[in-house]
Design a protein around this nucleic acid. Structure first.
Lengths: 365, 365
DNA sequence: TGACCCTCCGGGCACGTTACCGTTAGGCTC
DNA sequence: GAGCCTAACGGTAACGTGCCCGGAGGGTCA
């Protein structure tokens, strides 16, 4: 009877104490209608018998329905498409819950994002996944959502000091630090390095810059960092800045592009015939980048694992909504360092996300 | 009624066709007792209504019990302990199945492994997870297990051309290739490099050697590879070999240690005061390695993600046992490249596995 | 003393699926 | 044509849990 091997259920406790199932259920779930002494007795016996609820039966009975919205930009698709795929994957793998997903899209970060978030939170979703671009602007909105009982989960970047239930992103400052270390390994003599960043109102980008600068100072004193170049995610701006800085006589010997929008900078380098001469570390992976890494024109890229970010974000949001177990407030994934030699393991995911093999996705998550 | 939003169940199909639940169930599961035309009708309607079975109800009714054995060595604990943790984690996360896990241990690879595997397969487990050291020797045993209806899953290395249902490991040849690329980046002038390997009867180690040699030939023609040093996982042998080769006048400038047993070689380097002078790339992560990476004595280590390997191995084994869905025959994880700058993300797992925070484990999986 | 309330507890139904058993129609043999 | 067999199908209990309803017991007040 008291077999520790097999986990006991409600019925076992009821039989052991010769009381009804209803009483055991009330005691275990802290519902009213049980005397304190009976309650303690049940809890003690549950502990003793090693009670663990049958999750399948629980899920069947509860038949929970959850609605989750994901508010993400269309641009940059090579990052956000796999992120959405990760969310869909986690939704498909969620067992014991009737989950309805709705995707809200807006053109790009900073244009329409706030409005889309507001639209999403006006409908009564149980949870919302979103990317806080300018974290400040989201503060009142997240607060309001929390008051309305909507759980918000950040992905891609964080919005600290808000009521969000958690955040999932690649570890930004470590990304920056790795870039610094790679450049320091490949630039042995005294030289200058430059960083091209996206939007410094986004926490993620600030952290990358911080990590890069800090690591340079510690492990690469022979490299000096130029003032950061902020493109505000505008391709033409990035292109112009790159041309300007690389035409200088004392041009940088190493470059870290911390935004996924790296093509304009690479295009400028190509036109100046500097590809391969200047050491370049980029961020994320997309089709146009593949041949540049293969040929060694780009030293390495720091892969932010968008698929996993989406997957983990929804998994933790569901964990929060289903049980009252709080997830880690801040979850920061280890970025993958992609060189030409391990590029082949990640290439499967640069195609159209439609045709991608999910199994392959999971190998590198 | 035919609401495409909400997934239909067995009852919906039965109602739509005005037949009984039993018939629908038989038709959907290809069980006998249904006429072909009724079966086709049911399948067609299921497709049309968007039938998806309620997994919770299914699991509750079936109440499946599975027993799985994991046959793994005690040594090297910093690799196999987290691997076992990963298996335990996946077992805990498995919902809707009464899973009983049993661990079989033996001292080390090559001593007692075959016997332990034989002992495990004599009991009637549903599945066995194991590490094929000398793959040849396992061939008849795996065949016998398959005949007895035991599903076998390789982890850490593969046993090709056997009846195993799949294998999970870090991508070995890519690991070797990354090591070659790292050394080539850090050794710019003409030099020699050496590889210390474990057991060349293990496929995983052969693949690392192949990947290393091939990548050297392609991207680092200035580096020449010495004959591989095989320690057979004996610390004293590795130490002796390292001392011998590093005392030579024309000693190697770069070293790749492809086995997790790297301390004897590092000890020899330390005694010869060569740490920091010789570029070293190691495999896996453990406590003694941390300060060496932090201080730059070791350039990088290739982390084989044992936790994830164990997790994925059991997940796929269960997938095979529960549904008849065949997993990918060979699953090769992308190894993590750990430098001093991203070391902090992995440090949580070098302590005793008991105290480890599972959440932290999952961040870097 | 009877009507009423409150606390505590037992009993039973429902969730969606599967396994088992009972029933019927139709074909077969002698 | 009676008896029998089998394929095809209907009906239903049961899996373990959550939740509601109602009943028993004790106390209070008119």
């Amino acid at each position: 009877m008291t077999n520790p091997e097999k986990s006991a259920g409600v019925k076992d406790i009821a039989q052991a104490l010769k009381i009804s199932l209803g009483t055991v259920d009330r005691a275990l779930h802290d519902r009213p209608g049980v005397s304190p002494k009976t309650r303690d007795l049940v809890l003690k016996t549950a502990q003793q018998l090693g009670y663990s609820p049958n999750l399948a039966a629980q899920a069947l009975k509860l038949n929970r329905r959850l609605s989750v919205a994901a508010v993400l930009p269309k641009h940059i698709s090579h990052f956000f498409d796999p992120l959405r795929e990760g969310i869909r994957y986690a939704a498909g793998a969620a067992v014991g819950v009737n989950l309805s997903l709705e995707f809200f899209e807006y053109p790009r970060l900073g244009s329409g994002d706030i409005e889309a978030f507001r639209r999403a939170t006006q409908k009564q979703f149980d949870g919302v996944i979103f990317l806080p671009g300018d974290a400040r602007k989201y503060e009142p909105l997240v607060k309001k959502a929390a008051q309305d009982g909507i759980a918000t989960m950040c992905v891609g970047s964080d919005a600290p000091n808000t009521e969000r239930i958690g955040s999932v992103s690649a570890h930004a400052s470590v990304s920056g630090a790795i870039a610094a270390e790679l450049l320091s390994q490949n630039l042995t003599s005294k030289a200058e390095v430059a960083i091209f960043t996206g939007e410094l109102s986004t926490l993620d980008h600030v952290e990358k810059l911080r990590g890069f600068a800090a690591a340079l100072a510690v492990i690469a004193p022979h490299l000096t960092l130029r003032p950061a170049l902020e493109s505000h995610e505008r391709p033409r701006e990035a292109y112009r800045q790159a041309l300007e800085v690389m035409k200088e006589k004392a041009r940088p010997s190493g470059i870290y592009i911390s935004t996924a929008n790296s093509m304009p900078v690479l295009k400028a380098l190509d036109e100046l015939s500097l590809l391969g001469k200047v050491k370049v570390v980029t961020t994320d992976l997309f089709r146009e980048l593949v041949p540049l890494i293969e040929s060694g024109m780009v030293l390495a890229t720091l892969y932010q694992r968008p698929f996993t970010q989406g997957k983990v974000a929804l998994e933790n949001l569901l964990l929060h909504l289903l049980r009252d177990r709080k997830p880690q407030p801040i979850l920061q994934l280890a970025p993958h360092v992609i060189f030409r030699t391990n590029l082949c393991l990640f290439e499967t995911r640069v195609g159209t996300s439609q045709d991608e093999d999910i199994e392959a996705e999971l190998q590198t998550q």
